[in-house]
Amino acid sequence: MSKGLQKVKGAVFGRGMLRAIVSIVVFLVLWELGSRSKQWVGFVMPWVGQVPAPTAVLAAWVELVGDAGYWQSWYMSFFRVLGGFLSAMAIGIPFGLAMAVSRNFKGVAFPVFEVLRPIPPLAWVPASIIFWPTQELSITFVTFLGAFYTVVINVLGGARSIDVRYYQAAQAMGASDWDIFRRIILPGTLPSIVVGAAVGMGITWEVVVAAEMISGGGSQSGGSGGGGLGFFIWNSYVGGSYEQIVVGMISIGIAGYICSEVLRKFGGIFTPWLRLR
């Protein structure tokens, strides 16, 4: 009990935490000084001088907290990320497993996959808009692509890294092909699937923001909240409210972070045998 308490104390007031706080505070102060340089020093600092000050950002944020449109943006982005991410998992995992199980399937599919992979997902945006009937679907598709490659590559890598002895042991104990798939390949690739999902989630957020900016940034989505956080940023830029740009950036950062953490927790539930590491 007291040991646990001490641990918490150590984490909160430990040297590392203290230094982290110092460093972030120094960063914020420098930023504040930089952005207000014109008022205070009479000279606009290059680069930082153009960025709204943290206090101004905070003020803008406080204002926005009560704004439904802002939260609507959160919701839209989350919705798209989830759509793209889940479809990437739903298609990517079976696709990757199929390639891991069947050498012939891999022989047919993998080269095509490898040729398409270097094309950045965002390059698909126009094609996606042309192809899919709705704006929503086309954004989801591009988001899906971003996570899809990562998930597939991780599933394949995970399956390849399974120790041959596991197969041999299973065969020696009379396991059928289905047993081997269910009891060895699937759990064996799970850790890599979790990793792939985490990385894929990061990419999904990147893509969503860009896709929203490129496609929604044009005109269609009506209202301030219809376009998601990426559009929120773009809209703020177009509207000249620079503080809101930074609010948007931080919001996306937080949203992405929350998603990764949730995913990590989920991953932990699916792979209990890795917990002690």
């Binding site: 680069w47 930082v48 153009q50 960025v51 957020w205 990147e206 923001v209 860009a210 900016m213 956080l229 990426g230 940023i233 773009w234 703020s236 830029y237 620079y242 740009i245 930074v246 948007g248 950036m249 931080i250 996306i252 950062g253 937080i254 992405g256 972070y257 990764s260």
Partner: peptide, 14 residues
């Protein structure tokens, strides 16, 4: 954690 692309407008301003 801030996606690179969220920097776009800020980069244009800076």
């Amino acid at each position: 954690p801030i996606p690179i692309l969220a920097w776009v407008p800020l980069a244009i301003i800076m």
